[in-house]
Design a protein around this nucleic acid. Structure first.
Lengths: 347, 347
DNA sequence: TATTAGCACTCATATAGATAGAGTGCTAAT
DNA sequence: ATTAGCACTCTATCTATATGAGTGCTAATA
């Protein structure tokens, strides 16, 4: 196959075919297509173009004598061409209301309503990866005794997120001793982000003076232990039922697979985690989702930031054949709103 | 219709019909049924019995000249008759492993694995209502300043549950002042359950002496505010995909309704909350779920306790036509295991 | 050289009719 | 009280057939 840039006409046709297939769900045939889109071309010519596009890998046929449907490569072309122009659309007709955010205080509720909104507006499944605490700034640390050997390590971040972890000690420590640790840790660590603490601060503090060395050492040990295997940030999902009215999902087995994938969350989290590190809106189409084959599904996601660090992801899961014009700006815009909000909140 | 006790034979037949319908999913007809279950009766007699059972409301026909299917009343009869005898089966063949529980420390993880197990073993959807914190005993209270007027109120319970809530104050308070509050509250409230604190303790403490009256008053105000509209306990769900292979769920619209119901969580929570207050295993069959019509679904749930207070619920959601023999003991046993574990843990 | 008209062929889908199978209700006989 | 027999009903399944939309190819046209 010869590599070749699409010429203008081919590009137009390809976009229109993908668009048509997205809205109807039926393979696009030459005759009705030229008519509907008033191309001043005969069906025969259209067939030739389609044939070329098929050769180049943008289209395929479910069977001989059926119309064409886009391949993943075809969708990819379509989305990319959208991204060039969608920004002007972004604020129009998209109903994410910023005030909604400021009314709520608790972060989990905020994200729940964001995910709900995404699903309601897009009519697909909304997803959000909660902010990775790594980049949030410690405000307070408290260690509380549970049983003789078990303590609860609590970090409060400046955003009001509470991270807590049970830690089992090798020897019992009483609560008064724990208070000392808490005071020491709060004094030394507040104002720093978790990632700074993990990567360097703990080790620097190992030699700090002006504190009983034993308190210092045990306190830092507990901190290290508590931060070691940090809990994966939660994923919120809403609108799973929207996956059901995806026309391509008639085969129950496919649907089960998708549901299992979504419920399982680990794989989804891994994928989201990767997306977090990309800039802006990112789209995973069909088989491009490498970890697992989720049939007929695409993910459109945007990482959001606190300041300059991308800390989480919002987006939607929908059918590969989906309404990209609407969804891409929606997800992008939502990401920006969340970024602004969180950045504001942390100041 | 004349109210009448079922005679022995009718009861036998009814049980067998429900059983047969549960396993095959097809309306039970007279001829094949007498054959399969080797009743020494002719199909005609069976038809007469079926006719009677239908008159009494235990069976119905999807259409003339179809076999019979159980009504909700029929299922109810079947389950009740099961409950009389299942206890001997309870510990056999049920694979909830108690050791699994003791290895985990964090409560949410414990419940996640319980729900997972329920869904895996039953092949239906597992559900759990987390322990209502009302009956858990306070271990420690800490108030931490977030912004000038916002503070974070943290309660740690003896079980290691962390409850936190943002509270907005009318006038700014600095962190040192907050420490005083924390110390006072921890001293006065630890060892009491939240429900005791809410119902009487706060008011009793209003007049306590030996502490600056201002600290006392504000601290109690904050506590009252924080405990006022307590967060609803979370619901864990696993195995939604199992709802898909329910044969009666072929109609997508039904399935969507069920999924929406499960995702919505509020209604589910209300139902679970009611179940929490019942003793032992409880079964809601089909239309008996009053809040909403979840088509073809039943809920089997068991409340679990800490000490003597029922604090939460575990159970499963499955098709009305489900394998009650297996599920009822499973849910019951799981409830007991969780009760033991939590009661143990809290001591 | 690019486009178009025409034609034979393919495939998926929809429709209608026929048939088989399982079930019921009723009546009369046991 | 139970059963055999019979006419009737409803569903599911199969078959055949027609229809429509699509393709690829070739030859004519601009």
């Amino acid at each position: 196959m010869i590599l070749k840039q699409l010429n203008e006409r081919e590009a137009q046709v390809l976009k229109a075919i993908v668009y048509e297939y997205i809205s109807t769900g039926k393979p696009v045939g030459s005759r009705s297509f030229v008519q509907k889109y008033s191309f001043s071309l005969s069906p025969a010519t259209m067939r030739n173009i389609m044939y070329d596009l098929e050769q180049m890998g943008y289209l395929s046929q479910p069977h001989t004598s059926a119309g064409r449907i886009p391949t993943d490569k075809g969708y990819r072309f379509y989305v990319d061409s959208l991204l060039d122009t969608y920004e002007t659309v972004a604020k129009n007709g998209v109903e994410v209301r910023e005030e909604l955010l400021t009314r709520e205080i608790e972060l989990d509720k905020i994200f729940m309503s964001i995910v709900r909104m995404l699903s309601l507006i897009s009519k697909y499944t909304g997803i959000a990866l909660m902010p990775k605490p790594d980049f949030t700034v410690v405000k307070h640390i408290e260690i509380i005794s549970l049983t003789a050997n078990d303590v609860l390590f609590i970090i409060v971040t400046r955003t009001g997120i509470v991270i807590h972890k049970n830690v089992r000690l090798s020897s019992p420590v009483n609560q008064d001793e724990l208070y000392k640790y808490s005071r020491f840790l709060t004094a030394e660590l507040s104002g720093y982000s978790l990632v700074e603490i993990k990567q360097s601060l703990i080790n620097q503090l190992r030699t700090v003076t002006g504190i009983e060395p034993q308190v210092r050492d045990i306190a830092l040990d507990i901190t290290e232990l508590a931060l070691k295997d940090e809990k994966e940030p939660e994923i919120y999902i809403d609108g799973i039922e929207n996956l059901l009215h995806i026309p391509d999902m008639v085969e129950t087995e496919k649907l089960r697979e998708v549901l299992r994938f979504i419920e399982q969350k680990d794989t989804l989290r891994k994928i989201m985690e990767e997306l977090r590190q990309k800039e802006g809106v990112f789209t995973l189409i069909g088989e491009e989702i490498k970890e697992i084959a989720i049939p007929c599904c695409s993910i459109i996601a945007s990482s959001y930031k606190i300041g300059n660090s991308p800390v989480g992801v919002v987006g939607i899961i929908g059918p590969t054949r989906m309404d990209y014009e609407k969804v891409v700006p929606l997800v992008d815009y939502t990401g920006k709103v969340v970024s602004n909000f969180l950045t504001q909140m942390t100041k």
